[in-house]
Computed example of a mutant assay.
Amino acid sequence: MADNEFGYTPWGMDWVRLAEPLRQTRPEPLLPRARSIARNDGVRVEIEGRTVRAHLHRGGQASVAHVEVAPLTRAAVLAIGRTITDPTVLTDETHRALLDAGHSPAPTLASTDCSCSARTARCVHVFATLYTIARRVDENPRVALELQGYFDADAESDTPAPEPRWTPLHTLDPGRFFDAAR
Rank of each mutant, 00 (worst) to 15 (best):
P87Q: 00
W15G: 02
D3Q: 10
I37K: 00
P87Y: 04
E48R: 15
Y8I: 10
T85K: 07
T132R: 11
A180D: 10
R58Y: 08
R35T: 07
Q61V: 10
L147N: 02
P32M: 11
E93D: 13
T120R: 06
Y8A: 13
P174W: 12
T73V: 05
R96L: 03
R135T: 08
C114L: 06
P168H: 10
E5P: 04
R58K: 13
I37G: 04
P160I: 07
E156G: 05
W166M: 09
F151D: 04
L30Y: 04
F178C: 07
S36D: 13
F6N: 09
T85G: 05
R182E: 11
T91E: 02
R96E: 08
E46R: 14
D179A: 14
A79T: 03
A34W: 00
V124S: 00
I133K: 01
A70C: 04
N40K: 13
A128Y: 06
G102Q: 08
Q24S: 10
A118P: 00
V69T: 02
Y131A: 05
S36K: 11
E68A: 12
S104T: 12
A19K: 06
F178W: 12
A181G: 06
E5Y: 13
T83C: 07
T73H: 06
L99E: 14
F6D: 08
G102D: 06
